[in-house]
Amino acid sequence: MSVHVLHGDSFLVQESLKEKYAEIGPLDVVDSNSHRYQADQIKLEDLRVVCAALPFLASMRLVVVEGLMSEIEEVRFRSRGKRRDPKRFSGWDGIVDVIQELPPTTSLVFVDGVVRPDNKLLALIKPHAVVRTLPTPKRDELSRWVRDRVRMRATKITPGAVQLLSHHIGPNLRLLDLELEKLSLFASDRPIEERDVEELVPQVRDISIFVAVDAILEGRSGTALLALSQLRRSGANLSYILAMVARQLRLITLAKEMLSSGMATRELGSRLEIRAEFALKKTIEQAKKFTWERLKILYESLLEMDLAVKEGRMAEDIAIELMVGTSLVEQ
């Protein structure tokens, strides 16, 4: 069948579309035998004309229409309770005629994002097309997808590295693929390991410092030491770690003062410039839990450690262990 519908995750849709281009032939053949249109760039009659043309020095032509189903989908606007203008669909109610007139030398492909099952255009096209729904993989499926992409590059990856990538980047397949390309080149002929991900992937490296800071301040020594060890292996120095701990202590101190004055949570988040709901909630919980005396002792300990390292009286690794120990003592 020469009519296809690819809809779902944008990365998976584009990957499937690449396969359609490859079926046409080499790049120079594809350039002269393929046309790609956005939904607002073409009308039904124009599509009819384009599809009717014969291939040039090739056996097939490819015509791609992108975003058409979502563009004309009748959905209720949540904010205004209105429906899209039905006239926007009327221009395409003859799409079946175009499909039936399609010459055997033309492959027509509709690509789109997530489309509702009751989409009117999809309902018209579906009986005459091969429809591929490509949902974004999640949880175990996402881990399997990561392993498959690594295998495509003739490389291997450890389960721990898969878990780190899946957890910290999530189902952003385009970003995951870019990071896997970088990691594959870095690892070369050995498996991609957790330390590679910690060192090269910004999302993992940045999140590790926040995990470490929270664990230090909350007295979770095991988590703190593990996260700090990962940070040290990735090149983080003591000054950076101390600065991040001091930053969170400052936020906790300010939040505690604002809470005592009766400030609302929303305004507090704005004043502290914390936009992430989870981070704001965590800071408020810590502010309620920490006493003024404990905050003072932690501040003094940070200052003493910083001076001891800078004056050569203490090694960085010892200072890090002492910082975790100080937090435990003050629990």
Rank of each mutant, 00 (worst) to 15 (best):
Q331Y: 15
P137S: 08
P127F: 03
E257H: 14
R313S: 04
L226C: 00
L298A: 02
R144W: 07
V201H: 04
E23H: 11
R83C: 02
P202Q: 08
L44N: 05
F89T: 03
D140T: 13
A129Q: 05
R220L: 00
S327H: 13
N237K: 15
V211L: 01
R116G: 04
V96M: 03
V96Q: 01
L302K: 09
I95F: 06
D28R: 01
E218W: 00
L62W: 13
I99H: 01
A276S: 10
T106S: 08
V245C: 12
I252A: 07
L259R: 15
K82H: 04
S260D: 15
D85C: 01
R144S: 08
R294P: 02
Q41Y: 13
L178W: 12
E198P: 07
R78F: 00
E321L: 10
R116A: 07
K87V: 05
S32I: 07
H7E: 08
L302H: 09
T326G: 10
G91Y: 09
R61G: 08
V197K: 11
E71F: 05
K281I: 01
A279D: 11
Q331R: 15
K156Q: 15
K256N: 06
E73H: 05
L180I: 09
R78I: 05
A58N: 10
D85R: 07
S301G: 14
C51S: 10
V309F: 05
K282V: 02
S239W: 14
V329S: 13
L176I: 11
V63G: 04
V65P: 04
S107A: 09
L302D: 08
I209N: 07
A243F: 12
S260Y: 13
Q163L: 15
R83G: 10
L231T: 07
D317W: 14
G25I: 01
S208P: 00
V197E: 13
Q203H: 05
K126W: 06
T326A: 15
L17S: 04
V114L: 10
V98N: 04
E66F: 08
L200V: 03
H168N: 11
